[in-house]
Write a protein that binds this DNA or RNA. Structure first.
Lengths: 204, 204
DNA sequence: AGACATGTTGACCACGGGGTCAAGTTATGG
DNA sequence: CCATAACTTGACCCCGTGGTCAACATGTCT
C-alpha cells in the first residue's frame, strides 16, 4: 500500500468514526468522503463498502464498551444490581452515541466483525440475565431476546432525547426495570422471539 | 369541482388510505398516485400536500379508534384495568396498522386535523392516567408524556414484529405495565419531558 | 531521473424522493 | 354541438443516495 493511500485511509477512518458517532451508522458514504477531504471514489477504492468501514472503525470500539459493561455487570456482587446497571449502561451508550445505538439495532449482516460483537454481547447478556434469574431477583420469564427487543425499540428515541439535552429517557428504563423484578411479575401474554426472528426483524 | 376530478380524488383517497395503512404515513406521494392509476401531478393538483391527504384520509379514522379505546378505558369499572387495557389496545393498533403507529409518533405539524386528534388523544390519556393514579393502582410519578414516549419508541418494532407474524411485542408491553403498578415503583432517576419537548423530539 | 505501478479523481450511471407547469384533453353549460 | 373553463398529463426541475471507471496524477523502485 502506498504511503498516500495509507494517509487517505486514515483520514477516512477518522471522518467515518466522527460521523458514525454523530449521526449513526447509516450516514452517506459520500458525506464521509467529503469530511475526509477525499473523493468518494477513493473511499470505494480503499474500503469497498460501508460494512468494511464499520468493521474497521466501529467494531473494536463497540466491543470494548459493551464488553466493559458486561464485565462490570458480572463482577457486581448483587446480581440484580449487575443486571439493572448493565441495562442502564447500555441504554446510556445508545442515548449518548448514535453509533452505539445502531450497533445493537440495525443489522449489517456483511459486517462480520461487527456481527461477532453483537453475538458476543448477546451471549454476555444471557449470562447476566441468567445470573439474576437464578438469584431470584429477575423474573423468570425474561429472556435475552426480550432485552434485545427493548434495546432496539428504545435506542432511537433515547438518542433523540439525549441530543435534545434531556435525560428523560432514563424514566422509561426505570419503569421497565421495575417491571422486571420477580416481585412485580404478572403472567406474560406471548412467547419470546427467537434470536433469528429478532435479527430478521432488525434488517430493514 | 368537475365530476372526473371528484372521481380522481376518491381514487386517490382510497389508494392513500391503503398505502398509509400498509406502509405508514411516509409512503411516497408518487406511489400513491401510481396505485390510484393517476398522474402524480393530479395528486398535487387535488390535494397539494401529504398533510392535506392525511387530514382527509387518516384523521377521522384515527380519531375514531383512539377515541373508542379511550372511552373503553374510562368506562371500565376498575381504573387499573382501564389504564392497562388502554395501553395494550393502543399498542395493538400501532402493531397492526402502520398508519396508527405513525399517528402518535411522527409529527406532521401542518396536518392540523391530525394534530388535533393527537392532542385530544393526549388529553384522554391524561384522564385515564389520572384516574388510575388517584385510584392508587398506577404509580404516582407516571405522566402522559411518559406514555407518549413509550408509544413512540414501541411503535416501530411492534409493527415489524406484527408484520412478521409475531405477537412478541406484547411481552414488552406487559413488562412495562408490571413496572407501572404502584407496588412495583422505585424512585425514578429523571424528570418527565414537557409535551412541547416530546413533540419537538418527534419531528425528525 | 525515469518508468511503471499504484492511487485519485470527478464525471457519469441508475434509482428514488418532492415538486412544477406548459401543453393537451375532457366535462359541462349555454 | 361547441366554446371554454376545468382538469390531467408526463416531461422536466431539484436534490439526494449507492456505485463504476477512464483519464489523470503521483509515489516508489531501480
Amino acid at each position: 500500500m502506498r504511503a498516500d493511500a495509507q494517509r487517505n485511509a486514515a483520514k477516512l477512518r477518522a471522518a467515518a468514526a466522527g460521523l458514525f458517532q454523530e449521526q449513526g451508522l447509516q450516514v452517506s458514504l459520500k458525506e464521509i468522503a467529503r469530511r475526509a477531504g477525499v473523493s468518494h471514489g477513493t473511499l470505494y477504492n480503499l474500503f469497498g463498502s460501508r460494512e468494511a468501514l464499520l468493521d474497521e472503525v466501529v467494531a473494536d470500539l463497540a466491543a470494548a464498551r459493551l464488553g466493559a459493561a458486561a464485565r462490570r455487570a458480572l463482577s457486581c456482587p448483587d446480581a440484580w444490581e449487575g443486571f439493572a446497571g448493565y441495562v442502564s449502561e447500555v441504554c446510556e451508550l445508545q442515548a449518548v452515541d448514535p453509533a452505539m445505538g445502531d450497533v445493537l439495532t440495525r443489522r449489517f449482516p456483511d459486517a462480520s466483525r461487527l456481527m461477532a460483537v453483537c453475538d458476543n454481547s448477546f451471549t454476555a447478556a444471557e449470562s447476566i440475565i441468567e445470573r439474576a434469574r437464578l438469584d431470584g431477583s429477575l423474573r423468570a420469564d425474561f429472556t435475552a431476546s426480550d432485552l434485545l427487543f427493548f434495546f432496539a425499540s428504545h435506542a432511537p428515541l433515547a438518542r433523540a432525547a439525549a441530543s435534545a439535552g434531556s435525560d428523560a429517557w432514563r424514566r422509561g428504563v426505570a419503569f421497565m426495570l421495575d417491571g422486571l423484578r420477580t416481585a412485580a411479575a404478572t403472567p406474560v401474554p406471548a412467547g419470546p422471539m427467537s434470536v433469528e426472528q429478532i435479527n430478521r426483524l432488525l434488517v430493514p
